[in-house]
Design a protein around this nucleic acid. Structure first.
Lengths: 108, 108
DNA sequence: GTTATCCTCAACCATATGGTTGAGGATGCG
DNA sequence: CGCATCCTCAACCATATGGTTGAGGATAAC
């Protein structure tokens, strides 16, 4: 889970995922629009792979990357689970504002 | 967005958020169960705060932390948006398997 | 006023991260 | 074969991260 969120915590890598949501792409294709070396881009790909967000397979000398939604689903599940709590808190706060504005203001 | 996912990419901080989903807590209360110094825990709190995930307010010498769901909602929105694409890809892949197993195997 | 408590801040350290370059393996092409 | 291409690997560098300790500010308690 650390690895998944860490992988998502970088705009280059999120952009890669966005592009991979459309087509599968080779490492070179992923690197092409980026203003960094191929080696640097390949490192980002490795981070995504080790987080389980993508899979790589060799096709000749090209390495094709495609999305693996399982890890993303687990991150999503984490957020959704706690979202329930947050919504509960927000509802409670809203109720508090309606009934006791001063106390609610103190709370937040 | 980088900051939000970075903040989530650490188990100590996710645990803090889980606890804050239940009650608001002081920095000391957040630090108490952790096997690290108060200063280290306070640094984690700062990371959460700078990501916009929590808000801190002074109450005497205690600093009370409570969840701010807005940033979490944005992370959730990102995941949900791309989830649509992933699901579409998965559906397409499934269809491909039904109609052209060999070609589908090549694709993944 | 004095002392204890809660927390921040600054300095420091080890390791991780994100980039570079250069070398080289494996494959495709003429 | 000989060479170009795609990519990995290793070494290196600057900076960030996650922890420590020690000092100290602000507030609470006596």
């Amino acid at each position: 889970m650390d690895a998944v969120f860490h992988a998502l915590a970088n705009d280059t890598r999120r952009t890669m995922l966005e592009r991979l949501a459309e087509h599968q792409l080779t490492v070179g294709e992923l690197a092409e629009p980026l203003e960094m070396s191929l080696a640097a881009a390949a490192k980002h790909v490795t981070v995504l792979e080790r987080a389980g967000l993508i899979r790589k397979s060799a096709r000749g000398r090209q390495h094709v990357c495609r999305l693996d939604p399982a890890a993303l689903a687990s991150a999503d599940a984490w957020l959704r689970f706690y979202e329930r709590h947050w919504n509960r808190r927000l509802d409670a706060l809203e109720t508090l504002y309606r009934t006791e504005p001063e106390s609610a203001a103190k709370d937040g």
